[in-house]
Computed example of a mutant assay.
Amino acid sequence: MLEMRPDCESCGKDLPADKSGALICSFECTFCESCNDDRLRGSCPNCDGSLTVRPIRSADLLAKYPASTDRKYQC
């Protein structure tokens, strides 16, 4: 099951699991669309894997399987 990380690892932007706008690699490194468009260009800076659109988790499934609260952004 996807961890559904709560923020962009590059800029810290909030990325709610029930909204679009997040991209992930196969290791679940998570980035926002803006960082991808501006710098990443579809490639994860951590593992060099490709970034793909993260699926949205519905509210009923979030209640049963909550998203992670562990923020990865490092100031």
Score class of each variant (00 low, 15 high):
N36V: 15
S26G: 06
P6K: 09
S58G: 06
G49E: 04
L51F: 02
L2R: 14
K64W: 00
L61D: 08
D37S: 15
K72C: 06
C29L: 01
S34Y: 06
P55G: 13
Y65F: 14
I56A: 06
D37W: 05
D7I: 02
G42I: 07
A63I: 05
C11N: 13
D38L: 15
C32M: 07
A17H: 11
C29F: 04
M1Y: 08
D60H: 11
P55L: 08
K64Q: 05
N46L: 07
K64H: 01
R54M: 05
R41Y: 12
L2T: 10
S58W: 02
T30A: 04
Y65R: 02
G42N: 04
L62K: 01
P6V: 11
I24S: 00
Y73S: 02
C29H: 12
D18L: 05
C11T: 14
K64I: 14
E9T: 13
G21S: 07
A59R: 07
C25E: 01
C44E: 04
R54W: 05
M1I: 09
P45E: 04
D38T: 14
C44Q: 03
L61N: 11
L15M: 13
L62E: 06
C29I: 02
L61S: 10
A22Y: 04
C75N: 12
S43H: 02
E33M: 12
D14F: 11
M4H: 15
R5I: 12
A59W: 01
D60T: 12
P16T: 03
E28Q: 07
D7F: 11
Q74D: 14
Q74P: 00
L51T: 03
F27G: 02
C8E: 09
L51W: 01
R5V: 05
M1S: 09
N36W: 09
V53W: 01
G21I: 10
Y73A: 10
R54I: 06
G21Q: 04
C47L: 01
L23Q: 07
P55T: 13
L40Y: 14
M1G: 10
L40N: 09
P66S: 03
G42T: 07
F31S: 03
R71E: 06
C44R: 05
E28M: 03
R39D: 14
L23F: 09
A59S: 08
C11V: 14
D7P: 10
E33Q: 14
K13C: 11
A17G: 12
C44D: 05
S50M: 02
K19L: 12
P6I: 13
P55E: 11
C11E: 13
K13F: 07
D7A: 11
